[in-house]
Design a protein around this nucleic acid. Structure first.
Length: 490
RNA sequence: GGCCCCGUCGUCUAGUCAGGUCCAGGACACCGGCCUUUCACGCCGGUAACACGGGUUCAAAUCCCGUCGGGGUCACCA
């Protein structure tokens, strides 16, 4: 049996973290088994579904690297893949179910049903549909139909119980009487979700349904419906939900839950998928870093946790830094360049001309950021004119320490004739200089760093010197010297 | 409330099915230290958990029962 799985989002908003993880697990499962990953858009809610939202979902999936084999924009033999375009495929099934007595009409209005539920509640009963439609005689139905009374079609839930052999949850048995005779065709002639899903999944030859645990109660309905329709039941796997720190289903109020927000925040997609994969799944007691191919090879539904997990942004940050560090510098440069450009630090033409320099700059900071947009915050002073560099308070202190300006001035002379061909040479010369002056290395480094960058932290000092170049380094020292000429008293 | 699911460090988890090798392992976070020109990286170390109560057993995080706690779901939404 060839594995066929699907991800079936509703384009009513962004793709959220939970949906992304569901998509990832489906994709991983398909790739591992050489199967097919189908993307189906469940846009039957015309009010809330928009083409823009569809595009957002596609963008998000592509960013995560989850290419689909069948679905929007790629087509496939089992389309259409937009539920809104599948209207006609459902009608014959409604008729069949009706003829076979597996479904029936109910003429009760929403108001009547509401009243029914209220009454049940007032009697201390659980609200439930009382099968009033089933009690109608053939004559009554004919008369109502002739009178053009609106009706819905309900599924007649059989007696007994339903056992779901869930690949993650294990065996779960539910009494069918817990399930109401749900509606499969609305009075406006539109079929409902629990009905169309069964037909779509069957039409698309879906073998495994992997989705969020919030669908579990639907699963019982769908299993029953699938059986009534005469289709083969897919294998189900329900992934526990992702919670926010308050242990409630992750939602907007927990901050960013949209996948594209994380792209905006500048996380590398590999970091994000690695993080997502491990939210609710683990391979063993040691491994945390997985490449895409490793994930495909090692993923398994059996090792998906049965308990919900809480989204921890701090851990995502760690993954972010980890992937930034292990990314080859040229590639990282390509990825980071747009943020430098967006920050106004460089333009595209200059970036091309100074490509080797940019790569060296990125390399100098590679250990120091986790998200792309953090880079321009760190590199700002490299792109400012000499006079625009601002000195933070602590940097000013470094410049005003006893003897600092004298040491700075002395180093300026050294630098004027220094060999700028490499960071190492600059450092070696500085060290030799300190030794000859019987000066501690740190006494030189700190004021120089302050003079060049206006800051007290950053990459290795000689990376800064080197990246700035001789002219600019001298100019910045001169400026610092003119601003803070007086050292502490002798 | 009914039904269903879940409950190991603050968080993600290994271990639970096949009880002993677990006074519970790893990772993130946090705290200390080392490295060092700062920050970061890296390295070393530390704090920290079997929800509770019974039972079975020579032995229970692991099996059984109960309690408590958390969540999901109960629409002419998907």
């Amino acid at each position: 049996m060839t594995v066929r799985v699907r991800f079936a989002p509703s384009p009513t908003g962004y793709l959220h973290i939970g949906g992304a993880r569901t998509a990832l697990y489906n994709w991983l499962f398909a790739r591992q088994h050489g199967g097919t990953f189908v993307l189906r858009i469940e846009d039957t809610d015309r009010e809330r579904s928009t083409p823009e939202n569809v595009q957002i979902i596609l963008d998000a999936l592509r960013w995560l690297g989850l290419e689909w084999d069948e679905g929007p924009e790629v087509g496939g033999p089992h389309g259409p893949y937009f539920q809104s375009e599948r209207g006609d495929v459902y009608r014959p099934h409604v008729e069949r179910l009706l003829n076979e007595g597996k479904a029936y009409r109910c003429f009760a209005t929403p108001e009547e049903l509401e009243a029914m539920r209220e009454e049940q509640k007032s009697r201390g009963e659980q609200p439930h549909y009382d099968r009033r439609g089933l009690k109608l005689s053939t004559q009554e139905i004919e008369a109502n139909l002739a009178a053009k009374m609106p009706f819905v079609v309900r599924f007649r839930v059989p007696d007994g119980s339903t056992v779901i052999e869930d690949r993650i949850k294990g065996k779960v048995e539910v009494q069918n009487k817990e399930v109401d005779d749900f509606i499969l065709l609305r009075s406006d002639d539109n079929p409902t979700y629990n009905f169309v899903v069964c037909i779509d999944d069957a039409d698309m030859r879906i073998t495994h349904v992997i989705r969020g645990d919030d669908h579990f109660t639907n699963t019982v309905k769908q299993a029953l419906m699938t059986e009534a329709l005469g289709f083969e039941r897919p294998i189900y796997a329900h992934i526990p939900l992702i919670f926010g720190p308050d242990k409630k289903k992750l939602s907007k109020r927990h901050g960013s839950v949209s996948v594209l927000d994380y792209r905006e925040a500048g996380y590398l997609p590999e970091a994000f998928t690695n993080f997502l994969a491990l939210l609710g799944w683990s391979f063993d007691d040691k491994s945390t870093l997985f490449t895409g191919p490793e994930l495909i090879e090692k993923f398994s539904l059996e090792k998906v946790s049965k308990s919900p997990s809480i989204f921890d942004p701090a851990k995502l940050d760690w993954f972010g830094g980890e992937y930034v560090r292990q990314k080859p510098t040229p590639e990282l440069t390509d990825l980071a360049l747009p943020t430098l450009i967006a920050a106004g630090q460089i333009d595209e033409a200059t970036a091309r001309e100074r490509r080797p320099w940019i790569e060296e700059l990125v390399a100098a900071f590679q250990q120091r950021f986790r998200r792309l947009p953090e880079l321009p915050e760190l590199t700002e002073y490299f792109f400012q004119s000499t006079d625009a560099v601002e000195y933070e308070e602590k940097a000013v202190q470094k410049l005003q320490n006893e003897g600092a300006s004298e040491r700075l001035a002395a180093y300026r002379e050294l630098l004027a004739n220094a060999d700028f061909s490499s960071t190492d040479k600059l450092e070696a010369e500085a060290r030799a200089f300190c030794e000859s002056q019987e000066m501690k290395f740190g006494q030189l480094v700190h004021p120089v760093r302050a003079a060049l960058s206006g800051r007290i932290q950053g990459p290795g000092l000689f990376d800064i010197v080197y990246l700035l170049g001789k002219d600019e380094a001298l100019a910045r020292i001169d400026r610092a010297l003119s601003l803070y000429p007086v050292s502490g008293k002798p």
